[in-house]
Every structure is written in structure tokens, then in C-alpha cells.
Design a protein around this nucleic acid. Structure first.
Lengths: 159, 159
DNA sequence: TATGTGGTGTTATATTATAACATAACGGAT
DNA sequence: ATCCGTTATGTTATAATATAACACCACATA
């Protein structure tokens, strides 16, 4: 399965993700406005997480707004609708690479190059569910993040 | 297994945890100074996460320091040595309830009453490890947090 | 045309965290 | 005993992240 640290045709993956977002918004009567679309695009261009203020700096240059609420509103929309995830460990945001699929995302964060890859691990949800059930806890959302070294940075950082 | 939302003898669990911390520090030549000890104590008194500035407010009343670095330094020490965990989702801190045991902690966070319970789920580490291995990723730390409703709040919040 | 809903613009502020530099306390090597 | 490295504390200032609150606008529809 495509787990993400490999090279790939990036322009295609951006285009696909934008199209998916557009058609989903159309079907759900959601407005993918100029600023929202641009924020999603900026995040799709990276395989790393961007801070809200990094994004705001770009929006600002492009005349799309200068104040924090501009970017936080766009991010709220994108997160609420599953196009973007917040990486809690980094207080930063990353485009969803499995849009449309309901999922319990797992993020692998390289602390050297800051790459962020979103993996799918269905069994994980099951195990968390079992632990939660034993405690009588009702899970609504999960945050699962692993911090470490991506394959490339392991090679360049020999033990 | 004791998963934590049940009632228990709280004064005993605080005392035990402090003693464990003390003997560990003694054996490792770590200094559990007055402020560090007090911060750990404050966190042990709660089964919820406290923000750094909440803790600082108490320290300040007690004459243990008034500036942010005071509490962040104490928290850094306690986190680095495994006595306290940071709850990333809340930007807050919670005393470790399994001190001394090497573990991949899983937190269940009630968004109604703010209770935080730390569970142990060994299999989870395994599954994350498998996913990471498939991606060639080397895990160093993990953040696993579930947000939802604790048993008590489920009862008081009928569907 | 009135009214509700959702989106934007803007000012101000809250919350969380760290940089940087000075001082102190202690232990071991010379 | 003094020098020096290490660790901890005190303090000022500021950085980084996030939200409250209110005014305005556009559009749909009753």
C-alpha cells in the first residue's frame, strides 16, 4: 500500500485532491471559497505540516487577507470537512491524503525534515476501541501521531 | 485491569507516586527540587490535565515563582523523566499514573468533565510499529489520545 | 421587502511557550 | 583553596498560537 514516503507524481496528487474536495463540496452544498481553496492548495503542495501563521503569510502576500481569523476560519472549515488534519504535536496543519475515506488517521512526523505522512491502520482503531470499552469510555475523536525519522533521514543520520 | 475512571483511594495513589518519583530520582542522581516536587504533587491531585499557567498561578500563591519559565522548566524535567505527560490535544499536562513502567501511553480525555485517564495498551505499540516498518519510518515517540465521554458523563448525557 | 444564514473584514486580546542573560550552588580536578 | 564545569534558579522580554467580538455583506426565500 502507498504509505507515502516514496516519490510520486505530486502535481497529480494535488489536482486529484482538489477535484475531490470540489465535488464533495458541490454535493454537500459547502462553499469552497477562494481563501479556503487556496489554503487547501498550499497545504497540498507540501508533504509537511504548515503553521497557521505560515499560511497566513502567503495569503497576505496574495491579497487574500492579513489577520489571523482569516486563516483560522479557513482551517476550521477544511478540518471540519475532513480535507485537512491538525497535527497536534506540531500545532500545525496538513492536507488529508485520503480524502473521502472515513478513517482514523495516523501521522508519522519526521523531526529532522518535518515530513508528515498520513497512514491508514484500521486495526488500530479496533485496539483503541477495546481499551476504551474496558474503561467504559466513548471515543469521539482520536489523535495518533508518531514522531521519529523518515527513511531518507535515517540514511543520512547513521547510528 | 485498573483503567482509571473508577473511584479509588486518591491520597494513597498520590503518596505512592511521589515515593516512586523520589526513589527513582535518588537512584538516578536527579534532583527532585522543591518546585519540581510541588508541580508533580499538584498534577497528582487531579485526574485531569492542568495548563502550565494554572500550575503557575498556584506556584505563585505559594511563593515558588511567578514567571513562565519557572513552571515550564519544572514540567520539562518531569516530562523528560516520565513523571508527567503532555496532553497535546489540550496543551496541558497530566501526572503519569504508571510511573516506572516503560509504556506507550494512551490517554482518554473526557471533553465534558475534562477527566484524563492514562491507559496501557501494549498491542497498540505493535500495530503502530508494523505500520511504521512498512513505511520505513523509525518511531521515537508516540502521541495517542482519544477524546470523548467518560462513563459518568455518558450517564448524565442521555442520547 | 423582511429576515435568516453563512461568509468576510477588522480590532483587540487571550493563551501557550521560549529566548536570552544574569546569578547561585555544588562537586571534582588541580 | 581556587578554578571550572555542570545544573538549577531568577528575571525580563518576546515569540508563537488562537479566539472573542462586532460590523458588514451577499444571497436565498418566505
Amino acid at each position: 500500500m502507498p504509505l507515502g514516503f516514496e516519490k510520486h507524481d505530486h502535481s497529480t496528487c494535488i489536482k486529484d485532491a482538489l477535484e475531490t474536495a470540489e465535488s464533495y463540496c458541490a454535493s454537500e452544498n459547502l462553499q469552497l471559497t477562494k481563501t479556503r481553496r487556496r489554503v487547501l492548495e498550499l497545504l497540498l503542495h507540501e508533504h509537511k505540516a504548515l503553521g497557521a501563521y505560515d499560511i497566513l503569510a502567503t495569503l497576505s502576500k496574495e491579497g487574500l487577507g492579513t489577520q489571523p481569523p482569516v486563516v483560522y476560519r479557513a482551517l476550521d472549515f477544511l478540518v471540519a470537512n475532513g480535507f485537512v488534519h491538525k497535527i497536534e504535536k506540531l500545532n500545525a496543519y496538513s492536507a488529508c491524503t485520503h480524502p473521502g475515506q472515513s478513517h482514523t488517521p495516523v501521522f508519522m512526523i519526521c523531526h529532522k525534515c518535518n515530513a508528515v505522512v498520513e497512514a491508514q491502520t484500521k486495526p488500530l482503531r479496533g485496539f483503541l476501541g477495546v481499551a476504551a470499552k474496558a474503561a467504559g469510555f466513548l471515543i469521539e475523536r482520536t489523535v495518533i501521531e508518531a514522531v521519529g525519522l523518515c527513511p531518507t533521514c535515517q540514511e543520512n543520520t547513521p547510528a
